[in-house]
Nucleic acid binder design. Structure first.
Lengths: 244, 244
DNA sequence: TTATTATTGTATCAATTTGTTACAATAATA
DNA sequence: TATTATTGTAACAAATTGATACAATAATAA
């Protein structure tokens, strides 16, 4: 079962979950030279939100994040990282959540646990866009990819969470060599360069980029050649995590 | 008042504080070419711990961390940063806390909130060693500086928290130019180099280090000269945060 | 079949940065 | 006044990065 928060459960108190603590995930994908993130759309509210969830009382925090990720994408072996904890009082506004629940035909009491202050642990994930199968949760009617460059208005402070995730991704890109997680198993050097250019939002010099990537010793060149364009066929590469 | 957790309060339930959530701080100082951290020592238990605390229901998370810092060091304008959330089930072990409370003459019931699972937000702080005045909290009888290189055994997973904080400090040192927070207002280039060498645990070339630091444009050279050694007097420098 | 085209892989050289050595300047001590 | 250890910076080498050039080539068009 990929969806833990059933409508019936939303009427219970927080039993089973740690109270006051949540997880929000910024799930990045890359498609057609665009960075995308997964968003949920709530019925009849016009509110869009990051996939989130709660932590079971007997569950490791990081496992909870993986569970949320799996529930929304069907993917289980994914690059996932904490990046910040959002704990300002200002982010606590019960109005959107009440609207969501009301739209689902449930009128919560004012002291319902979902309307309390939440502190949220932010995670970002990098997934292979072609492998993820977005699935909505019980409170939303859709779950899909949106261009990071033109996001719709988001619930609460989710826009800031996305911005902070993007900042972290940018600074981690070179330090941790994680970009490959956004590509499919094999890719061309041009694919990789377009990914870097999109994430960093700047043009990179082709020659220097190739030289740097190859010098890192983390790419395996496959003899296979890609074919498709009216020009010289590029090599395909595969990421090798020999460091581990 | 610099100490929020009075003995009487420890008998109450978590009212006033967010349940299940804590803050642990790794407070770095630098003295005599050694990195130090602040540790609390609990009476009659042989247990040492990082300064920690809880979040008030109407308090921003980051403000709570500043409050803890102020309560333990008397310092209020300090470099402070989140670095990780520790949320594994394995870290949850009520034995040490029960020992601490028992040693204080209080026998908690098994369901006391302080014996429940906690998820802890880790912060690290950089302070001017000469300005901090360590003050114990109500459950500990001492609070003092310990060499990072030879720490005593620590409570629960605090050793891992320290290690993660140190890792973060090392990677942040060049990216965020934060080392100055560990020095006094003015310092010599040699002071700065010794600090870097200690944090990074490696020798740096004097000439290159000076050239790099000066090229960053974040140091103001003071005409004053330091005097003390039987040799040429070095310039003093001050950090200028012109970037803001 | 052959020329055209856009792209690829890599070489080359310049510009910049970093690593290393050297040395004059100098503040306290002998 | 000479000695000493350290400082500030210059000078040069090595390495890295930036920019340009060009042959190789896979599909398309002539």
């Amino acid at each position: 079962m990929r969806d833990q928060l059933q409508p019936e459960e939303s009427k219970r108190d927080s039993n089973g979950y740690l109270p006051g603590l949540a997880i929000d995930t910024v799930i990045f994908g890359f498609h057609q030279n665009q960075l995308k993130i997964l968003l949920l759309e709530y019925h009849n509210t016009g509110l869009m939100a990051l996939p989130g969830g709660f932590i079971l009382a007997n569950e490791n925090l990081n496992d909870a994040a993986r569970r949320v990720l799996w529930e929304r994408t069907g993917l289980s072996d994914i690059y996932l990282e904490q990046f910040y904890v959002f704990g300002d009082l200002a982010r606590f506004d019960p109005t959107p959540m009440r609207a969501i629940m009301t739209a689902k035909g449930f009128t919560p009491p004012d002291n319902h646990w979902l309307l309390d202050r939440f502190i949220s642990v932010g995670y970002y994930a990098l997934v292979d866009f072609t492998k993820a199968v977005p699935i909505p949760d019980s409170l939303s009617d859709s779950c899909g990819w949106y261009d990071l460059a033109k996001l719709p208005p988001l619930m609460q402070d989710h826009q800031q969470i996305v911005q902070k995730a993007l900042d972290t991704l940018r600074t981690d890109l070179d330090r941790k060599l994680i970009g490959f997680n956004l590509l499919s198993e094999t890719f061309t050097m041009a694919d990789l360069q377009r990914l870097y250019e999109t994430i960093l939002d700047q043009k990179l010099h082709r020659s220097g980029f190739q030289r740097k990537m190859l010098s890192l010793g983390i790419l395996e060149r496959l003899d296979k050649q890609y074919s498709g364009g009216a020009h010289k066929a590029p090599f395909l590469y595969r990421f090798i995590s020999n460091a581990k």
